[in-house]
Amino acid sequence: MSGWEIFQVWLVAFLTLALFSFMYKDNPIYRIAEHIFAGLTAGYQVGLIWDTIILQQVWVPMTSGQWWVVIPGILGMLMFTRFSSKYSWVSRSSLAFVMGATAGIFLISELHGRVLPQIQDTMVSLSGEGGFGATMLSIIIVIGVISTLIYFYFSKEHKGALGVTARVGIWFIMISFGAHFGYTVMGRVSLLIGRMQFLIEDWIGSFI
């Protein structure tokens, strides 16, 4: 390992331990690392937007004859009027374009790409032709989807048959949230393993 590589490993190890030190208690080393992190994250975006949007999507096309890209460029610049209390209304049209166009894509894609395929896949056969296991699974899916929708999305008071179905919905939801919790534990532990792997193999390994 060269001196520069060793420096890099030690720098990462220092920053990792600085942030982990918060687990004991809040301290100035943690705060230093935290504020540098916030700054770097914001700075990362400046470089990214400058290059990928301002240069690649506005400047280059504009200088090669596509003059009309100046329109979204100006609309984008107008966003900064939000920092002025007097002229912030000017940014509304830019924001309205973003909101309207995004809504246009969403309106179709949510219905066509999510609602319909998910409902279609719930229209399963309960005739038992796939065997006991498959039929059980189909029953679980149909009851689970309907009861979840009733519990979450029907604002009518949960009484009578609706109340019973909503109650079944709660049990299904608890199973799903339990599974979610189990998976979330796995996810968070994985992230810790990643950092520990660095500290043990790369950092401690560099001097043992």
């Binding site: 937007i49 990928t52 949007i53 609309l75 984008g76 374009f97 973003v98």
Partner: peptide
Amino acid sequence: WLTIIGGF
């Protein structure tokens, strides 16, 4: 245009 304006 949406990718450009939104980028800002």
